[in-house]
Design a protein around this nucleic acid. Structure first.
Lengths: 156, 156
DNA sequence: CGGGTTGTTTTGAGTGATTCAAAACAACTG
DNA sequence: CAGTTGTTTTGAATCACTCAAAACAACCCG
C-alpha cells in the first residue's frame, strides 16, 4: 500500500527532522501509517514481513526517534504496551476498551481545548493535555450482555 | 496519623465491598490515605515500617483488590509505574511533570464533564474520561531555565 | 565516485514492574 | 471452636523495554 510518493514524503520528513534516511525508518513509518494503533511488536511484525533483518530493537529505537521528532505519536493507555499512530498534528483523543484494550480515535465535541485549561495548574507549566476515554467496544458490549443473560448479577 | 475511627471506617469500607478485613488491607489503606500518589514500592515501604511481614506481593494484591472495588484509584501515566491515591468519588485529573514525573491533582475548570462527551463514540459505551496534563513542575522549570542559560539552544 | 565521519542498527544482555501458581495461613460462619 | 473460603506468602516467571558495545551504513566532502 505504499507508493513511490509516500516513500519520498517519508524521506523528506526524515530529512526535515535531521534524521538520516534508513531502511528501518522508512519501513516503520510505512508500517504505522494508516494502520491504527500498533505496539512495538506489531510494528516489528509488519516491518519484518518486508525486511526480515530489521531487529525489534531497531523498531524500538526508530519508534522512539520518530515520536521524539513528532513524526509519530505515542500513546500508553494503562494496561497496554505503548502504542504508536501516524495521525499527528491534530489534537484527537482515544477510547480504550476496558475489556479487550481495543483503541479508537475520538474527536472531542469541542474542537478547541477548553477543558484542557485547568482551574489551578499547581505550579506546573502545562503544554499538553491528553484525554483517554474508557468504555466497552461494540464486541465486548455484546459479549458482556450475553454473559449477564446466562449469569445475572442479581436475581431481582 | 491513623486514629481508631479511621480504622473502623476502613473496616466498614472493606466489609461493604465484600472483602475480609485483614492486616495488609488496613495497612495499605492507611498508607495511601492522604499521601498523594504512591507506587506499589512506596506503599510497601510505608506498610513495612509498621508491618514488616507484609510482602510486596500482598501489596500488589491489595492495591489491585482495593482499586477494583473503588476504595483506591489507580493511575498509570506513561513512563511511570502505576500510582495509587485515596482521593476517590470526585472526578479530578492529574498533571504529570514530563521531566521528573511528579504528579499533582488538578480540578477541571469546568466542574461537570463537558468535554468528556465525545462527538462520536466509535461504537463504544463510554463510562469514564481520564484527563492527564503534561508539563513542567516548578522545580523542573527552574532547572531547565538554568540549563538554558548555560547552554542556549540557538546562538541567535 | 570513494574515503572518512558520524549517526544507526544490531547483538546480547540486563532491568523494573508486574503477574502467575501453589502452598501456608487467617478471617468469618455457624 | 472447627470448617470453609478467601488471603497472603513464597518463589519463580513474564513482559515491555532499556543499556552498551561493536558492526555497519548514510551522507558530506573533495
Amino acid at each position: 500500500m505504499s507508493s513511490a510518493s509516500d516513500r519520498e514524503q517519508a524521506e523528506a520528513h526524515l530529512r526535515a527532522a535531521g534524521l538520516k534516511v534508513t531502511v528501518p525508518r522508512i519501513a516503520v513509518l510505512d508500517a504505522v501509517t494508516g494502520h491504527g494503533h500498533l505496539d512495538a511488536d506489531a510494528v516489528h511484525a509488519r516491518v519484518a514481513s518486508d525486511h526480515p533483518s530489521v531487529s525489534l530493537q531497531s523498531v524500538y529505537n526508530v519508534l522512539g526517534d520518530l515520536s521524539a521528532v513528532g513524526l509519530l505519536r505515542r500513546i500508553a493507555p494503562a494496561g497496554s504496551p505503548a502504542l504508536y499512530e501516524s495521525r499527528i498534528g491534530d489534537n484527537h483523543h482515544h477510547v480504550v476498551c476496558t475489556r479487550c484494550h481495543a483503541v479508537e480515535d475520538i474527536d472531542c465535541v469541542i474542537g478547541e481545548p477548553p477543558c484542557l485549561i485547568p482551574a489551578d495548574t499547581g505550579g506546573f507549566a502545562i503544554h499538553t493535555a491528553e484525554v483517554t476515554f474508557w468504555g466497552l467496544c461494540g464486541d465486548c458490549r455484546r459479549a458482556v450482555a450475553d454473559l449477564e443473560r446466562l449469569a445475572p448479577a442479581d436475581a431481582g
